[in-house]
Amino acid sequence: MTRQPPGAALTTGALARRLGVSPTTLRSWDRRYGLGPAVRTDGRHRRWTPEDVAVLERMCRLTSTGVPPAEAARAARAGTGARVSRPPSRAAGPLPLGDVRQECRGLARAAVRLDAPAVEARLSEAVERYGVAVAWQEVMVPALHAVGRKWASSGDRYVEVEHLLSWHVSTVLRRRSRPPLPMDATARGPVLLACVPDEQHTLALEAVNAELGQLRVPARMFGAAVPAEALTAAVRRLGPAAVVLWSQARSTASPALARHIAATEWGPKGARGRPLVLLGGPGWAGRSLPGVSRPTGLREALDTLAGLHERS
């Protein structure tokens, strides 16, 4: 084995974190394209030198712009001056992220490559390291917004990137959720989480649901496009402490529905209750409704909802 000074080589796991790919991807590139390390330990463990890292950084840059992996590998080994044929027009390029956490950049690179194991790993690592609220706001949301902007400006391109990323965000959030808590008859009712009618975007509510489970606040998740009549019936049956109404687009936001839910009562005469209604999502921007709360972000919403149950 070629001897290297201490600290000169990286392990596969460390390099994967640096590049924003999965260790499985690095091992696959080694087997398929010969992009292996120049140094291996006596136990055949990979150790990646700065020269190896430079090659793989070129590989990541090329694959993120849609160059086929085999062609990208030849160009990466040849150096930065190598010429490669450009992919068809549907190939996905890098996402416009701006100033974001490094974990978000790694997640975006993995999503553009449609590297599902790496996407799953980056999401799980972010949630484990920062918790749901921070991981959602500072890692998941910027990546999702960047995909959305690319999709909007590129016709039908990036649809597959958005679908894959959304699926794995949902998977990780649901895995983080605890089993629904039973309702205590002596305590306040649960938090109801629902998208307004015609609204299909549920990821933000899934983040709220996961974090409420961690806070031990009972919640009932109704998901996408809940009909107004069904939501009203659920409020009367469950007597919730709060109802969170999510609207992604202004076209789906319904002030009339929000007012109706806020005025819905349950319980016997003389002891009737009403829910606190929280409006979530950009669809509610610019709308101010008396007696209805519009938190500025996930953390404020969670603090409000947890506070209701702390006072019960």
Rank of each mutant, 00 (worst) to 15 (best):
T11V: 03
H163G: 04
L35R: 06
S22F: 01
R40M: 02
E128A: 15
V141T: 12
P87R: 06
L231T: 00
T2A: 14
V127Q: 09
A126L: 04
M140A: 15
L95M: 09
M140R: 07
A78C: 01
G280A: 15
A78M: 05
S153R: 06
A225Y: 01
R27A: 10
N209H: 15
T24N: 11
V132C: 12
V139M: 08
E229I: 10
R101V: 11
A262R: 11
M221L: 11
A152H: 03
T264H: 04
M221D: 05
G43F: 07
A72W: 05
E51P: 04
C195W: 00
I261M: 04
V139H: 02
G79F: 02
A108T: 03
R149K: 00
T264Q: 08
W151P: 09
R61A: 12
D198S: 12
T171G: 10
R105E: 12
V127S: 00
L231D: 09
R188T: 13
T49V: 07
V196Y: 00
V21T: 13
E138D: 15
G189Q: 10
L245W: 01
R175H: 14
R74N: 04
S154G: 09
V84N: 02
G267I: 07
P290C: 07
P190C: 14
A225F: 04
H168P: 05
P290Y: 07
T25P: 02
G131C: 07
A146M: 05
R32H: 10
L212V: 08
G213Y: 12
V159K: 08
Y33Q: 05
C104D: 01
A234L: 06
W246E: 13
W29A: 02
L10D: 13
E229D: 14
H163K: 09
A38S: 15
Q4Y: 12
R47W: 02
A285V: 09
E103S: 14
Q200K: 11
E211F: 04
V161N: 09
V277N: 08
R27E: 02
A121H: 01
V159H: 12
E162C: 00
W151T: 06
L181Y: 00
V169R: 03
W246T: 11
A92Y: 11
E138N: 10
A91H: 07
Q214W: 09
A14K: 01
R294A: 08
D156H: 10
S153H: 06
P182F: 08
L238S: 14
S288R: 14
R157S: 15
E310T: 14
L107F: 02
P69S: 13
A110M: 09
P50G: 06
A194N: 04
W151F: 12
R61H: 14
V112Q: 04
V244C: 15
R46W: 06
Q248G: 12
E160G: 05
S28Y: 12
P96R: 03
V244E: 01
A143M: 00
P96H: 01
A219D: 01
L181E: 12
G131W: 05
R3V: 14
L193Y: 08
P88E: 04
S251P: 05
A126Q: 00
R188E: 13
L289C: 03
M59I: 01
A271K: 09
T24I: 11
S293K: 00
A271N: 11
G13W: 00
H260T: 10
L164A: 13
V196F: 05
V217E: 10
A54E: 13
T232V: 14
G223V: 06
E265P: 03
R83Q: 10
A73E: 01
L215V: 07
A38Y: 05
S177C: 13
